[in-house]
Design a protein around this nucleic acid. Structure first.
Lengths: 184, 184
DNA sequence: CCGCTCATGTAACTGGTTACATGATTTA
DNA sequence: TAAATCATGTAACCAGTTACATGAGCGG
């Protein structure tokens, strides 16, 4: 019962709970629409995963058929809700809170390897890239406005807002450091 | 030459550049000491990876021997520096800036599935977990103080600071939302 | 009727992980 | 002298990916 699940398995479990009865395809779309690129929502990941969750009795499915078109609709079981609660916590595992991985920051770490001109161009492109992310987040917020009635989903969106503001501020600091002391 | 490399391959290339001549073991330690849990620095990842980088002429190595103990010391080649610069950018790939994955936020999204009491406990544990992360970051800052002379490494550390401050603020918002409207 | 989206899946691959194995050196 | 760390690697595994295959339904 308390088999440890992968992060994606638990997240999908949560999605099915949150979306209500839905198909693997719906889950795939929710993942690929997400502004986070953590998971692509690839078919090769999702279909076998949801079958596994059904075998473990955390999801249940039924075939819906309108016309010739088949559609397997999943819903979460009581055991599934239990597993979801256990994953969400408390207690929180020791690895739940960590320094998140930011590819932009990773690259910034090695900016000294580049010439000043490149560094300035880098900052400019990084700002544009962050603005693009901002647009994607805003788009998600409008499309998924309905699930936003959940106060915690709203807070997750708020997290995205705060995160982007923080990264913009950080980039400004980087830029001023660059302009004031061109010695790197 | 412009073979696309994995994120870890490029990051290791950067580490060797930043640390100066060093062994695979040094790289492993740098990765496992890092407060980010993105990469474990497992032997099974690093040793084959650095061999690959050497085959591609991005790293060069020589066997150092003091007593019976062998130690393979790697340094970055000019081609390696070129590859590093190319990875760092500009130009920045479209996937470089993204909404980062935060397991804490992922779990928060489904907090409505838990009872109010659990939600309050969750917030408390999350705060403790973030404080633990803060301690790990501070420890890293003291241990790796020498590479901190690089202004961009300093800015990466600064990013960690800002990130933690942001997440603490977000958690406070979550908590007040919880205390004011206990309806979730 | 062509192309797009809906819908479900499989096969091959990949970039990591854990666990194991070995042996030298250092420290308590 | 026992335990920890230094140091190098391999083997088995695993959770994702891309790419492929198939077919229904729908809008231009």
């Amino acid at each position: 019962m308390d088999r440890t699940q992968s992060e994606l398995e638990s997240f999908v479990l949560g999605l099915v709970w949150q979306l209500g009865p839905c198909s693997a395809y719906d889950v795939r779309k929710a993942l690929s629409d997400s502004p986070s690129s953590q998971w692509s929502g690839s078919a090769g990941a999702i279909y076998p995963l949801m079958s596994r969750l059904e075998r473990r009795r955390l999801l249940a499915s039924k075939e819906e058929r309108n016309g010739k078109r088949a559609r397997r609709s999943y819903r979460i079981t009581p055991a599934g809700i239990g597993a979801l609660r256990q994953w969400v916590g408390p207690p929180l595992g020791s690895d739940v809170a960590t320094v998140v991985y930011d590819p932009l920051r990773s690259r910034a770490r090695f900016l000294s390897a580049c010439a000043l001109e490149e560094q300035l161009r880098w900052v400019g492109e990084a700002r544009l890239a962050l603005e693009e992310v901002e647009r994607r987040v805003r788009h998600w917020n409008t499309v998924y406005g309905d699930v936003m009635r959940d106060p915690f989903v709203r807070l997750v969106a708020r997290h995205g807002e705060l995160d982007l503001a923080m990264r913009r501020a950080w980039l400004r600091e980087l830029e001023t450091a660059l302009r004031c002391s061109p010695e790197a």
